[in-house]
Design a protein around this nucleic acid. Structure first.
Lengths: 370, 370
DNA sequence: TTGTATGCGTTATCAG
DNA sequence: CTGATAACGCATACAA
């Protein structure tokens, strides 16, 4: 059954070739071709195709049938030039190969698809320079709108601001820019971090550290605020030195290494860690594993995470999950409103979605608190 | 430090609004604006911008400086219309939110970016219909080329074939279409599966089952061929009933459930499983966990996987890793060759990359075999 | 009901 | 060295 393949399968993983022919460029059918073939003018054909009331049923039928037959499709580029809209939108994220973002893009794409829009994706890889380049590139590609989650290093928002001021529809999600008034989609980061911290506390942990994205990101500040409030509400002291920042949001392995090692080396060593970002959660877990620190017995850990692999971890890891797909859907939806609103937009929304606290497995000790 | 945020942070996760004004549409600067402002003709401006030899240094300087000042960027849509190329390529994968594909897209995007190309992504979600729709949509968007990994259900390749025959540059990767002669990028699936199976055998497993993508995919056949050969080379019997197929490649949870449950219910129950696809690997692990079957003590497991979470699993899981990023880079590179070759292409390559067998953790029993 | 002319932004061809 | 004009594919105001 599989033997044929087994026999003629070349084993060495090297490149091999086979010969074929390939010629002419890909040429599309135009309205002109139809007009010529049918002895009509291009305008008549155009109108027939758009089902204009001015065209007789006969010609209409003739044109439509012929168009169908030769597989005519209007050239979207010509249309874009005419309509001054490209029907494509740009998305900027820090990296595609990150569950949260790929799920968000998934949501964006699904709504875009339904509405006949293309999604053009580019990654900043947490570099503000690259983000700016992408931004310039995308806008020079005449996109109709932009969905953005800024990099961990973005401090200069002047280009985004100018873009917005000049009328480019923009929707921010997750890592938003607070200073720009437009639609925004975020989760309740404060509550997510608060609840997660409370979960750690009620699991018996008392000395809870946090690792965070850089402070310039609003999500980082919100999450830390939630963390801090939870500590306070449960009579625990907030110690700023128990918070470690990773400038690249965990994109660099070393920064998580040092953050965790720093915490482990403290004389008052934490008994649990709150990881305030997807990459930070996986990073913390990786480092703790490699240092031989058992989670959750020797160190409690909870963090923001979206990969479906987290449910397979053993011992199980409790996480704070963001509704990534829905965030993408909503962002695209809001963007479409901006793009397609004829009149000036006067109100902007900030959609705050709930996070999901997924508690997995048993906790280290029986709760001593509440 | 964080107290300001903590105070004014709205706690209930509901939508709130604030008022702003927003008016005019986003209008780009054109060559005409420059011409008018400088009292020149559009052709002169165009030539000055392209640094043509016919233009005097004085005018050139004038134009360039003014263009810089008012932030001129050529309209790519007008350029596309003129040059009959869009400088964007289409990518079709089964789903973005899958580590393998998102890493591949990462690679594609990085090469595309360097060469001034846009990447337009769409997902088939393992549906042949949706794949066809996407294909029609992308080609009607006048893309310059296509990078495709077909869905698990794709049997009718006539549209792809016609596209290719009409001159559309196409590169296949991973799930290739063997019948179409063009560049292809795959890993040595046969060897990957062979080595993985040998690893299971040398770990002491003797009764090795496999779960696979549908047989119509060449990668599925190649992997099973490798599996089968490894069994044979080690004196083990191949039993076709030990192979279970998941029609949707593991995209549906139930299909993995039944595949694994079937295997567990056999009178001669397998002692190990080879999972021949990323989704199948995570799926198998999920089901085994939920059924209380301990890996690797009660059931050996090895599979194709790309998520970086797999390294955090405990007990550790050995996997077969595909160099996803590199595959993307190579695919984009080959596509650029096709797009930018002036003369007809006469030779097509199939790049076969090596998989990486990542062995993690200790094996269940000491090897009884070699 | 159909055809002609114009413009979207750009470059290429041809004149001047 | 610079300017006018046509063309890319399409839609539409205007003419017939």
């Amino acid at each position: 059954m599989f033997s044929s393949l087994q026999l003629d399968r070349p084993l060495p993983p090297s490149a091999f070739k086979f010969i074929t022919l390939r010629s002419m460029k890909f040429e599309a059918v135009t309205i002109k071709d139809i007009a010529k073939a049918l002895g009509l003018s291009t305008s008549t054909v155009s109108r027939a195709l758009r089902d204009s009331y001015e065209i007789s049923p006969g010609t209409k039928k003739l044109v439509l049938e012929y168009a169908e037959k030769i597989n005519y499709h209007p050239n979207p580029i010509a249309l874009s030039l005419k309509e001054r809209r490209s029907r494509s939108i740009g998305v900027i994220v820090s990296e595609i190969a990150n569950s949260f973002f790929s799920q968000t893009i998934n949501g964006i794409e699904s709504i875009a698809y339904k509405n006949g829009y293309n999604v053009i994706i580019s990654q900043s890889r947490e570099s503000a320079e690259r983000e700016l380049l992408n931004l310039q590139y995308l806008t020079s590609r005449s996109i109709d709108g932009l969905i953005v989650s800024v990099s961990a290093h973005t401090t200069d928002i002047s280009f985004l601001k100018e873009l917005h001021d000049r009328g480019m529809p923009i929707v921010f999600f997750d890592r938003i820019v607070e200073q720009i008034s437009t639609h925004k989609v975020i989760v309740d980061n404060y509550k997510g971090a608060y609840d997660a911290t409370v979960h750690l506390i009620s699991s018996g942990y008392r000395n809870i550290a946090a690792i965070s994205n850089p402070d310039i990101l609003s999500i980082a500040r919100e999450r830390l605020a939630g963390y801090q409030a939870a500590l306070k509400d449960h009579g625990l002291l907030f110690d700023a030195s128990m918070v470690r920042y990773c400038p690249n949001g965990g994109m660099l392995l070393e920064e998580v290494d040092t953050a965790i090692d720093d915490l482990l080396a403290r004389e008052q060593r934490p008994d649990a860690i709150l990881a305030c970002g997807d990459k930070l959660t996986t990073g913390a877990l990786r480092v703790l594993n490699s240092r031989g620190v058992k989670v959750p017995d020797q160190m409690g850990l909870i963090g923001f995470a979206n990969s479906d692999m987290t449910e397979l971890l053993n011992p199980p890891l409790s996480i704070i999950r963001q509704p990534a797909f829905e965030m993408g859907e909503i962002a695209m939806d809001l963007l479409l409103q901006l793009i397609e609103s004829k009149r000036p937009v006067t109100e902007f929304e900030t959609r705050i979605l709930a996070t999901e606290l997924i508690v997995r497995g048993s906790t280290r000790t029986s709760p001593t608190h509440k």
